[in-house]
Amino acid sequence: MSEKSIEERVKHIIVEQLGVKPEQISPEAKFIEDLGADSLDTVELVMALEEEFGKEIPDAEAEKLQSVGDVIRYVEGSAK
């Protein structure tokens, strides 16, 4: 396994799941407003994050993850 940062891993998943270009992804980018996701995309995105980081994300937490930065902060926070 290469030593990818959490940020890189999150970005990679978002590119894969939402079919967006890497340069579209900034910490401020919101999934629905800026990256064209719909409600089903966000469910699938959360599932992919759970797979990648090997932990469950409760629905109540998942609802708060609206931007790229939200996800990075959440994963970094829960990794401690």
Partner: peptide
């Protein structure tokens, strides 16, 4: 069941 895709039915 928690890993079944939300896109499966559509």
């Amino acid at each position: 069941p928690g890993r079944v895709s939300p896109f499966m039915i559509p």
